[in-house]
Nucleic acid binder design. Structure first.
Lengths: 221, 221, 221, 221
DNA sequence: CATGAATGAGAATTCATTCAT
DNA sequence: GATGAATGAATTCTCATTCAT
């Protein structure tokens, strides 16, 4: 419920997640229902956009009345909050493992891309929401962790690219920040068209992306 | 991305989106003011998202009251409409010129990417709006041209890629649709961070993007 | 202030307010728990106001869930009802005793004031609720006894004042209805600041009030 | 719109009153309409209680739709705010004049009581709201001035009483804080029954109150 | 007796839009 | 061209209440 990964230092913090009144009383309240509802909400948010999604729409989708959602959640905002922070927490579990593995730059990039597509596969809706709404939401203190996460993200990728340039693994003639943005966007935008039932498994998509990004699409002359 | 109205043959016809009653009456009313207002609206839409932007906010920014905007425009919707269709019309002017130039696949890709960054440079706000809102808006009949444009866009890029694979210019081992999406996203997402006053001119950004996409970021072994 | 149900003659009959279905079933269910819950509810009503108090808040304070309160009471309304009618019943027990004692006007006033402060001491919350909400509640038929009580109250005080004027005990130059309101308010408003743990016992406060009211605060010239 | 009197030091501060968006733009927006609407709102708040009053009820009374009120005011809360702060500002204008006049204790009390009844005459609804809701509202920072005002009020009355006791004008055998509360409540509660069209002018009511309070209702023996 | 989950009827508020001036 | 005042529909959220377990 809480929050995502935090950059400063390196440890994940769970900030936002103020226990909603109910939870305070009913900490044990069935987490399955909660998860179900959040999955539904994420789907709708991803499809229609956060602002354009009415609480009533989510409730309809869940087969209940709009007011009933408030038994489970404080507000519409706390729903996205929980969706995004849950996703980011998992994402950073994966990323941190990769970054701690001591791989070379090229292998690190490969692993991060692969990990990213796995996350897209498992949290497609959350990723799509993140892509579309993060900038907007990050303006609110409650979503400060989005900015934190982004900073940590940038640090990880930029660092790896720099290491690769130093190592001679990556080209030195490219603007490194431009390259970072290129990689970052390339990977995450995929959430907007990715369908888990599609013919490519996330690992296969990752492989092709890595191949394009590292070696280009042109035939080597 | 997408492309503007392109129903039948190959001739994009973006609905002029200028048929509000008032316009009927005041069609001659200074088009500069109109353009000014649309520029302001585009800026706000891009910054806050279409749904999250209130007409009041646009009016504030323009130094008038919300109601006064309705002298110039039919509705909030017709503002985005005009912003997007104007942009797409210009975009296709450029793209069509490139496609008609009879270049080879590699050169065509280079030219399309360059053209795209030029459009981002000139219509940053419109591109950002397009990126964020197109899917949403395209559901309404009024915005059918968004879907049309997208289809034409896909045709142009996919065709070029296929040609390149046939020619031996591009690698045959990559999924061509995946590659298309990769290229498309890579280019347009740049609108979300691009700043006209930044240190790179659009042509330089395009050059680097093309280089990464065609030749990869890894040092060739 | 007012007085409880007192429709016809002179015999106050406060509707027992205990006719909820559940009560029908569980009338024997521990009356102590019931009293505890009412005491809690009275405290919260007095502190926050009846309307501003949520059933949830009362339940929280009682360590249960909102729905659980409905095992004990029909409704939020029936809680105030029971609180107020219980209080008024006791109040009139005391008042009636005083009025039946055949005291002189001055002594009657003294006794009524003392009795009132004793009630404030014992039912502070109920008195505070009465003060703040009676007018509002009295509009509903269910709370008709509030109006009845008020009428009886007025009769008792006004009668005593008139008797005192006739007797020559009280000044004849004052508007008697104004004086009545003055006395009434003076006494009951004390419930808003009275704290049972305060340094004055109710009898001492009563003594000082009586002294001020009868003899004034100015030094007699 | 602004605020009331402030105790610290002695000067009136206008704190709350954050210009509502509209006002920011339209500071000149007809203040008569505003005043009309506030008068209506005050009436309803006084009659039904702040919480129990719906914005729709006020709008009905004003002959408009609920949403339309928001053209004039930020919120229901800002309506009470403006009602109370306007009242308190006027009240302190009067009080400060009295306190600055250098009267003796007895005359000061007389003047303050008279001034109070004049305020009740002119702002009956506001006074009634103040009486019923102040404690509740004062909990919010926005209404901090209520507490400030109350403190200043207490200082003025308590000081005068103390001076009177020292002077020998007032009895020394009474608890002075008790006496203060007695006076304060006695005066203000009158707002709950006062009707401007009643047969007593505020000055006459004040005279009788002063007489009762200073000299008592008993005939001097 | 109590919980957990829901209902349903508002409540306050927002906002695109209208229109007389 | 623009303002001021409003409309009306929708939106988020609240809360008393119900009821199966």
């Amino acid at each position: 419920m809480g929050s995502p990964a935090r950059p400063d230092g390196d440890n994940v913090r769970v900030p936002t997640a103020k226990k909603n009144k109910k939870n305070a009383t009913t900490a044990s309240a069935s987490p399955e229902r909660r998860r179900e509802l959040l999955a539904i909400a994420a789907e709708v948010f991803a499809a229609q956009g956060y602002n354009a999604t009415t609480v009533r729409r989510i409730a309809d989708e869940a087969g209940m009345l709009a007011g009933s959602l408030y038994y489970h959640f404080d507000s519409k905002e706390s729903m996205v909050d929980e969706i995004l922070s849950t996703f980011l927490t998992e994402l950073w579990d994966g990323y941190d493992a990769v970054l701690a593995a001591g791989l070379g730059p090229r292998e690190t990039i490969e692993a991060l891309v692969t990990e990213s597509f796995r996350e897209i596969d498992r949290h497609r809706a959350a990723v799509a929401i993140y892509q579309k709404e993060a900038r907007q939401l990050a303006a609110q203190p409650r979503f400060g962790y989005l900015t934190d996460s982004q900073r940590k993200f940038e640090k990880a990728w930029l660092g790896t690219l720099e290491r690769g340039v130093t190592d001679g693994a990556f080209r030195a003639d490219l603007d490194i920040r431009l390259t970072y943005r290129f990689l970052r966007d390339t990977v995450w935008v995929a959430a907007s068209w990715y369908r888990p039932e599609g013919r490519h498994r996330p690992e296969e998509i990752a492989r092709q992306y890595v191949s394009m990004v590292l070696d280009g699409i042109a035939v080597r002359g």
